[in-house]
Nucleic acid binder design. Sequence first.
DNA 1: AATCCAGACAACCGCGAACGA
DNA 2: GTCGTTCGCGGTTGTCTGGAT
Length: 349
Amino acid sequence: MGGHPCCYKQKLKKGLWSSEEDGKLLNYITQYGHGCWSSVPKLAGLQRCGKSCRLRWINYLRPDLKRGAFSQQEENLIIELHSLLGNRWSHIAGHLPGRTDNEIKNFWNSCIKKKLRQRGIDPATHKPLSEVKDDGNESEKKLPTSSQANKGNIVGMKKSFLPPQASSTAHESCSGGSGLSGKPSDHLLQCYSFRQINYADDMGVDHPFDYNTVPSSPSSLAMHNSIPVSTFPAPAIVAHQVKPSISLLSDNSGITSYSNCSGFSYCTDSTPFPWNCENKFDKQLSSTQVHSMVEDADKWSMYLQMPYLSGSSYPDAEPCQAYSNIKPEIEGLQTLGFPHPATNNGLTL
DNA sequence: AATCCAGACAACCGCGAACGA
DNA sequence: GTCGTTCGCGGTTGTCTGGAT
């Protein structure tokens, strides 16, 4: 713990953990739980600071950790989530059961970054490298940090935070090199939601991505991309693997984007936003409204995952309680003209 | 066999938020 | 409201390992 008093005490061991230390910590926490971390080392008989114990438990000893290499699907999800959340590793980890923020961060820094660069994508912005260079090489600043996005500054995000212009490179990165000849593979559609398909290139519009120029409906986009309309929304298989969440992205004038992560599509032909350009900005929300909605995204996420929960990775969830908790927000959104998410996704409550 | 190097992983550090006295 | 303590997060550094020379 930076600044924590225990860290300044002498004779506290640092560095790698021995198996004996692991055993002590594991035994203690298994038996008594961690409680107050600062008291754990003393009670467990360890010459470590509480912060070190906590980290060791979270990143290594926890029984629910999934060890081993990341699967291609996990990698795709991390890329997808990073494009939306930036370096908010703990949030990203929350969508990958059994993985830790540290593990994902290391994987990103050591592996994914390099892969994306090789594919011509700037890992910080998820934009083509050539485009980033034009921007003055400020790529590291483009995505929100936790201090920006997690603390209510989402109102004020610019379009640089919007989904990437996928382009063929993004197709490749997602399809695992299977190649793309006009029609995305099923795998592509599973790991990327439709909004990441290259509207700009395919529709002959200029970068950067601009919702003013998106097709008037997913149908037209689908036809243009030879994607069956039935693939909208994206296959629910993604939602089995990741907790969906809604992101409300806004500039200072109100909502400019209403999307989710994980491919759990919220926009369909029947929704007024954002596909129907005529109505796209009908629902101007105040900063406060947007703010509130963003901060409640986790609750939405909790709700949206419900239909996929039975027997899934979230056996402890209580759908009914979750729904009752956020019902007021849902109703509030409905009064603003947003469709009910369950209805919108063909679900029933 | 020794050395170098890069990649992967583990752990530490500093900071800010949350919480209670 | 202030202060001290604790916790959690993200950035950074350290260590290990395997391959190349």
